[in-house]
Design a binder for these strands. Sequence first.
DNA 1: CATGTTTTTTTGTTGCAACAAAAATGTGAA
DNA 2: TTCACATTTTTGTTGCAACAAAAAAACATG
Lengths: 234, 234
Amino acid sequence: MEMAPEDEGHQQHQPNRLGEMAYRNMKERLIRGAFSPGDKLTIRALSEMLDVSTTPARDAINRLVIDGALIYSGPKTVIVPHLRLSDLEEITQMRLALEGLAAALSVKAAGEQTIEELELLQAKIDTALDEKRYFDALWHNKEFHFAIYRLSGMPYLLQVIETLWLRVGASFNGLYPEFSETRYGARNHRAAIEALVEKDAAAARAAIESDIRDGFRQMKKITADGDQRNLCRR
Amino acid sequence: MEMAPEDEGHQQHQPNRLGEMAYRNMKERLIRGAFSPGDKLTIRALSEMLDVSTTPARDAINRLVIDGALIYSGPKTVIVPHLRLSDLEEITQMRLALEGLAAALSVKAAGEQTIEELELLQAKIDTALDEKRYFDALWHNKEFHFAIYRLSGMPYLLQVIETLWLRVGASFNGLYPEFSETRYGARNHRAAIEALVEKDAAAARAAIESDIRDGFRQMKKITADGDQRNLCRR
DNA sequence: CATGTTTTTTTGTTGCAACAAAAATGTGAA
DNA sequence: TTCACATTTTTGTTGCAACAAAAAAACATG
């Protein structure tokens, strides 16, 4: 007996469907700033919010805690963490190492199509800033970076980098519009594109590292306190 | 009125006690080579093995899958993965970036006590090799590396590095005694200790990077196949 | 008002069972 | 044997409830 047309694309089986969905959903919300540092999250509240049972909600929260996107403030209390300066410094160091690596590796796979995509994304960033849509600008900025990193062909590397972005992203909002307005990244992005065109690994790494460093300085300047206080308002 | 600093992240409690225990237990077993690539793991089998219910067993397996220490070979089948050359290359690149960073940062905190500890660990490695206790040698080798990395004072960095070691460690055994016998690491370890004594960050990074590269070459030579085949016997 | 103390409510953990889907096994024909 | 098909067993997922512990609220006391 003939089987139904099994579309050639091999189906990606999805283990832990609801839990994975809850995790991605929460990740998105955290990056988009749906929660503020200090907000308390509970399994039952999340399960109600996403209309699933407690098991997938618990899976999502546990995983976010492992990522560092949520932390325990007590034995039975998980909250959105206040990002301390020491955290930001650690994350920045790791970003420099890993995103620098990804950028250096990306030049091998960089083609014309990629360049066009990056140019387009940079244009989107610029127009978003012109129109003061700061959130969109930051979103396209992320797309720009990961469009490059994806060229490295290293999936686990990408996963770790994304987790680092998640951790800063969660405590990122509230810094508008000061943070985005400066357009600190434009020059670095241009340099990165140029490096990809010329397939210069060292230059690509330098451009990305410079972008990360500028962003770090920018965040530090805005928050304007060098001690253990958190980096977010309220 | 002034409130005391809340110090939200650094409390000591154990959320998910049984699940965490199961996770650590499995991690240990994987590194020690209790399983071979291709072995199938099931929730119920693990829950019976560790004498807990299915929930903590499921938590442990899910987390190991996230780490990459286990993978799905089918919708309902998780196995110990065969480490492919491309995986080893990705892991090695990330190790160079992150362990190089940790080593460079470690020199700031390196004191006399640390040096003595490292000398002692290196002595243990040497004697273990002399007595052909290859597993002990590899264990002390790990202790040596992490004794340095711990000086960086960056907990999340350490966590990511440890996950990378877990992934190679799981497919590592079966390479005895060829791998350990060569003592490729002794020279690099000496160089690392020397760098810490002189607080030379660049030298520390170079020594660790050299160690990682030598280990990678060693593994590649032993396995002796450059294609997609796995790196483990059987 | 401030501050301990008690009571009530909430919460994470853990075990477990039902269910559908997948894997393993059995069966038979060429 | 080998392959295709049918049957049985196993498995992950998901929801849920009991329990102890923790958090919140209520209360009392100075």
